[in-house]
């Protein structure tokens, strides 16, 4: 809850400081999250069912990176994510972790992810593949002494890609809740909260205000799963739940006033509105 407040505070602060310079006539940010959220979930690494050994090794390597500070320093590069990094050195038993460089040097770790999912995995400004998850996975490989191969896939086909062996894991802001039995799960390295994004001057203040409104969501995301599952009761009050191929399009619709709100996790949502709220 604290993290969320911090974000909200930051979002109020930035435009406020801009307004102080006289660049904007209003105190409200262009876009904001509702204070009420849809729920919090954990992001973890999904492996093929039965792939316990790999899941354990990768999880151990991630913990080792927490201890040597790499985990936090990668986090520093992604301000939207930093507040949701849930791993600390506390409680990590160093003795149980794999040795640095103890991996098979012939092995190439195939990291499966969605390239449409900033800030976890996305195209960088220079056109290269990057993101928090990509950097962390690369650091894991470096730690273990493995080769690294990026396998960007189409999110809808992620299970087929994993089962067919074209990648070794799904690691791309991947929500564990509701999928506990479908994968062998590695460590939860981040958590995130699903929220509702609206225009700064919108009269929507609470979840109840969404009744009769048009809400956009990206297909096959946790926000979507939530609205189709645990929070179906809420979704039923909407005028319409509009499902998009990507959040980019949904966001453009919100800007254009074609929809009233977007259901999205706070990290991705903050990334989306960062440009407009400066």
């Amino acid at each position: 809850m604290k993290k969320k407040l911090a974000i909200l505070l930051a979002m109020v602060m930035i435009p406020a400081s801009l307004a102080a310079c006289g660049s904007s006539g209003s105190d409200a940010p262009a876009y904001r999250f509702l204070e009420e959220d849809l729920g919090t979930e954990s992001y973890a690494i999904g492996f093929r069912l039965g792939d316990e050994e790999l899941a354990e090794t990768v999880s151990g390597a991630v913990q080792a990176l927490v201890l040597d500070g790499t985990y936090a320093s990668i986090g520093e590069k992604y301000p939207d994510i930093k507040d949701f990094l849930c791993l600390t050195a506390e409680g990590i038993d160093e003795a149980s972790l794999p040795e640095k460089g103890s991996g098979d040097p012939e092995y190439v770790f195939k990291h499966g992810f969605d390239l449409d999912y900033p800030p976890y995995s996305y195209l960088q400004d220079d056109g290269s593949v990057g993101g928090f998850d990509v950097e962390l996975a690369q650091a894991v490989c470096e730690y273990m002494g493995w080769g690294y191969e990026a396998v960007p896939f189409n999110w809808d086909a992620k299970d087929m890609e994993l089962n067919a062996g074209s990648c070794d894991c799904i690691w791309s802001g991947f929500t564990k809740e509701g999928r506990e039995d479908l994968y062998t799960w590695g460590i939860t390295y981040s958590d995130n909260t699903q929220g509702i994004l609206v225009a700064g001057d919108s009269d929507i203040k609470t979840l109840a205000d969404l009744a009769g409104k048009v809400v956009g969501v990206q297909t096959a995301t946790s926000a979507y799963d939530m609205l189709e599952g645990d929070r179906k009761d809420l979704a039923d009050t909407f005028g319409e739940l509009k499902v998009y191929e990507t959040y980019t399009i949904a966001y453009n619709d919100l800007k254009a006033g074609a929809i009233d709100a977007i259901a999205i996790d706070l990290t991705a949502g903050s990334y989306l509105i960062a440009g407009d709220n400066q």
């Binding site: 390239l115 449409d116 900033p118 996305y122 195209l123 960088q124 980019t248 966001y251 407009d276």
Partner: peptide
């Protein structure tokens, strides 16, 4: 595909 990825990363 790349257009979609850039659109996502650059909003």
């Amino acid at each position: 595909s790349i257009a979609k990825q850039i659109a996502a990363s650059q909003t």
